[in-house]
Design a protein around this nucleic acid. Structure first.
Lengths: 200, 200
DNA sequence: TTTAACCGACCGTCTGGACGGTATCTTGGA
DNA sequence: TCCAAGATACCGTCCAGACGGTCGGTTAAA
């Protein structure tokens, strides 16, 4: 038969995930399965075949999302860079260059809202966050730096999400600032020489 | 005027707002009005009397929340402090000392989720964010500092919300770090002397 | 008596998901 | 190569339950 199959489960599945994001943007976090199915050009029954419940669909969306982000970070790791903070830098670049809220289908408050409403999604998000926390912690930078950078990236993301618009100049400045902060390994503040401060 | 009224519209109204938060924590972002009313010890009709629609109730919740936060910041402004960054410091202290996710009725992912689902809530949040942005921008610190601090505060908040738990040691470190960053007014990175970088 | 606070039964609507069916693909035996 | 038969992808109707909000009524305050 032809290279283009009329039935391609994988393609349909991915189409449904994208359609879900689009439908949520259009109809808000409370989209109906009907709307998603319609957006994907599939019947409701077809949707339910791939995702047996609505929550399953939303969980599928986070999986897709985290997979994309992980891949983006890997893509941004500079092979010629072997200084401390290389993963941090890749993380920063991925966050700023690949996760633009502008054109991104997923970067929309409604999508976030819809996803966070599912407990299982929260679990996944937390697990992912834990992984990043430990990976970035072992990146060779002073804890003050990696901590500040990680939180700032979260903040930028959430801020852009809430604001709904992006100040490109500010965005660029923040990006450069964070990258600059990875270029030294010492503490950010004078007087605090090390993270180990237990005196008991 | 009797000290204790059997009918006290204000008290009921506030009880409903708290009950809404509690009910959302218990039943998820999609609570029914019935559940909220029950939690507040009021009939559904009573609830609808104070908040004519569900969205109105949620908008009421953000108003309450932002009012509390604004008041907290004002409370944390140190009258003896007239150095640059005093508002920033108050902001930091308010965020860390008055917005603990632990005991706070409102600091719960479900509550955030429920609120973000309402367009009007987003508008309010954005307006509030804009106010803070301009206030903090006029606080006398180098833009790199105020920008980083603001985004970090957002990130800490959202991170704790997602994580659901709080690492008190990390929290304390972040707090001290941010406060420390307000103690100098120069740029954070060497080489960047000023925010004005237009070269075109 | 008027008005505001509050009640609770009721209704129209919506939606998740079950289900029974159809079309297409795959497999393996001859 | 062909056929049978099971498996997989997809369809579209149907329904029970839930929920938001209306409304006529009731009780306390002014």
């Amino acid at each position: 038969m032809g290279a283009v199959l009329q039935r391609d489960a994988d393609r349909t599945r991915r189409a449904l995930l994208d359609a879900a994001a689009a439908a949520i943007r259009a109809h808000g976090p409370g989209v109906s399965l009907d709307a998603v199915a319609r957006e994907a050009g599939v019947s409701k029954g077809g949707l339910l075949h791939h995702f047996r419940t609505k929550d399953t669909l939303l969980v599928g969306m986070v999986e897709e999302w985290t997979a994309r982000f992980d891949a983006a970070v890997q893509r941004h790791v500079d092979p010629d860079d072997d200084r401390p903070g290389r993963l941090c830098r890749a993380h920063i670049r991925a966050a700023f260059d690949d996760l633009g809220v502008d054109d991104q289908l997923w970067g929309h408050p409604s999508v976030l809202t819809a996803l966070l409403a599912v407990p299982e999604v929260l679990h996944r998000a937390r697990a992912s966050e834990d992984r990043w926390r430990s990976d970035l912690g072992a990146d060779g930078l002073h804890p003050q730096r990696s901590l500040l950078i990680a939180r700032t990236l979260d903040g930028v993301w959430m801020s852009e999400l809430l604001e709904g618009r992006v100040d490109h100049s500010e965005r660029q400045q923040t990006r450069d600032l964070l990258l600059g902060l990875t270029e030294q390994t010492g503490p950010l503040l004078p007087g605090t020489t090390d993270a180990r401060r237990d005196r008991s």
